[in-house]
């Protein structure tokens, strides 16, 4: 259990003070895959670096299983850091060491004897599917392979938590997918809690169960991924979920017809097509003005805007749609002009 309580971090720079985090409070339960998402400069890296004290918060506390690590000495922190390891966007492998020796590195730091360290490292290389690269150097590996080695290295000391700071941002979509799969596997098999820092919605959607949206150093939304993404309430959340500029009021205003907002909040993705069924059963024909829906674990989340031809149709449509489980429909109020 990681409890981040009211954490603030201010950097004093030559020109001014940068408030990277402002009173962040989050709690990450054991076994979570917790996503922290936000735009560049939102403070994501700073936040994750506060979880292993690479950065000391200016205010607030970070409790790991009840121990406030902001109060620990450097020496005490070193042992905590064996339990909370980290992988990075740039992999950060030791370029002059073989892959095997890279995986041995944290064990060496912990004073584990050589033969034992090698044995453990080989097991981990096996786990990540790169046992054949044991004696290769990082430069001879692809980015995805390097990140796998970095993951093996991060797992060497049997950590409880794996922090991932933009771990897939330098990788192509397929490789990203395979790395995320590996993280999921580790989470499920070893029960390791993962904290995933990213600026990509797709990463959170793919593996996280919880998410916090960070904006200008403030957590503006947090909760189950489905709930947060289906109906983002904050401006930052909306920007993330509807990157093209949201269900623009322009779309709504321009149509001149009644507009209905349909919010999918975990509706069954396999259910019969909603619009077609509505046309057949109620005779209401709707045109889709805007749609941003995603499917997460077989459920649909997101928003859709429908235009119908009359107020009467609108009422019928809302009544019809609202009967469905996990779907909410409402008429969009128009501005007076």
């Amino acid at each position: 259990m990681i409890e981040i309580k009211n954490v603030s971090k201010t950097f004093a720079t030559a020109d001014n003070d940068v408030e990277a985090l402002k009173g962040v409070t989050l709690s990450i339960a054991d076994g979570d895959i917790y996503g922290i998402i936000g735009m560049s400069g939102a403070g994501k890296s700073t936040l994750v670096r506060c979880i292993n004290m690479l950065e000391r918060p200016t205010e607030g506390s970070v409790e790991i299983d009840g121990v406030d690590i902001t109060r620990l000495s450097e020496a005490e922190l070193r042992s905590v850091r064996r339990d909370i390891t980290m992988i990075f966007q740039g992999f950060n492998l030791l370029m002059q060491r073989t892959c095997l020796k890279n995986v041995c590195f944290p064990l060496e730091l912990a004073g584990v004897n050589k033969t034992e360290a090698r044995k453990r490292a080989m097991e981990l290389l096996d786990l990540i599917g790169l046992a054949d690269k044991a004696n290769a150097y990082p430069a001879q590996l692809s980015g995805g392979q390097q990140q796998r080695i970095a993951i093996a290295r991060a797992l060497a000391t049997n950590p409880k938590v794996l922090l991932c700071d933009e771990a897939t941002s330098a990788l192509d979509p397929n490789t990203t997918h395979s790395i995320l799969e590996l993280i999921r596997e580790i989470n499920q098999k070893m029960g390791i809690t993962a904290v995933i820092i990213t600026h990509q919605m797709s990463v959170v959607e793919e593996i996280c169960n919880k998410v916090a949206i960070l904006d200008h150093g403030v957590v503006v939304e947090q909760g189950e991924v489905g709930e947060v993404f289906s109906n983002p309430k904050s401006a930052a959340g909306k920007r993330l979920v509807y990157p093209a500029g949201e269900e623009d009021t322009a779309v709504v205003a321009g149509s001149g017809k009644p507009t209905i907002r349909v919010v999918f909040n975990g509706a069954d993705a396999t259910a019969t097509p909603l619009i077609a069924r509505m046309a057949v059963q109620t005779g209401v024909e709707a045109s889709i003005a805007y749609a941003a829906t995603r499917s997460l674990q077989g459920k649909i989340y997101g928003t859709m805007l429908l235009n119908v031809s009359s107020e009467e149709d609108a009422e019928k449509a809302i009544a019809f749609i609202s009967e469905r489980e996990g779907v909410i429909a409402e008429e969009v109020e128009k501005d007076a002009d």
Partner: peptide
């Protein structure tokens, strides 16, 4: 970043 990695793994 490599040095930071080492710190994050508890290197003295």
């Amino acid at each position: 970043n490599t040095i930071e990695m080492a710190q994050s793994m508890g290197a003295s």
